[in-house]
């Protein structure tokens, strides 16, 4: 059963418990720091590789002030010529921010896209994460008008998820706009 309380043992026990806990956390933090960094790096690498043509060298993350752009990567071939860009782009979707990785070729053509994070409705807007769906496939090599068909563009929206589709399209448009200014 619990011990009787007095000021000394209360202070002692609280201090001791906090010290021990802090020590344990410190050790675990140091031990896991490397795997956590590695996991994050691997995830970033994988998401970049997914939206760019194979081969070539990928730069460190570069920052940009362009609207909605969190950062971008430049892919170059062996001689230093730019072959593609991977842009991290965020817009507001239906349930919260939608962040995409968009691969864009120097001429402004979309190479491929992938979803980094979102909070869209499961079964509706969240379908934008489904690989090989029509919505996702149409982005590969897309060079048409960046708007959903309802708004007079060339993108077929996901059924019953126009807001998500618009957000997705806007995020891609932001990425393409950045690449166009970079290429100028």
């Amino acid at each position: 059963m619990a011990a009787k309380s007095n000021l000394t043992n209360m202070a002692l026990v609280l201090t001791a418990v906090c010290l021990v806990c802090a020590a344990i956390l410190g050790v675990i933090y140091v031990v896991t720091a490397e795997p956590i960094a590695a996991a994050a790096a691997a995830e970033a690498q994988a998401s970049i590789a997914k939206v760019l043509p194979e081969g070539g060298e990928i730069s460190e993350e570069l920052s940009s002030d362009a609207e909605g752009v969190d950062g971008y990567f430049v892919q170059t071939d062996g001689e230093g010529a730019v072959t593609a860009y991977a842009v991290k782009s965020t817009t507001g979707g239906f349930g919260g921010p939608v962040t995409l990785m968009v691969g864009v070729l120097p001429d402004g053509t979309v190479y491929n896209t992938s979803v980094l994070s979102h909070s869209e409705t499961p079964g509706l807007g969240a379908k934008c994460t489904e690989e090989n769906s029509h919505f996702r496939e149409q982005w590969k090599g897309f060079a048409g008008k960046l708007a959903v068909t309802k708004d007079g563009g060339d993108i077929d929206a996901i059924t019953a998820s126009t807001i998500t589709s618009r957000a997705y399209t806007k995020a891609v448009a932001q990425a393409v706009a950045l690449v166009k200014t970079l290429e100028e």
Partner: peptide, 10 residues
């Protein structure tokens, strides 16, 4: 920890 949009930018 979370980013919010509230109709505008995240």
């Amino acid at each position: 920890t979370k980013e919010f949009t509230f109709g505008g930018e995240a």
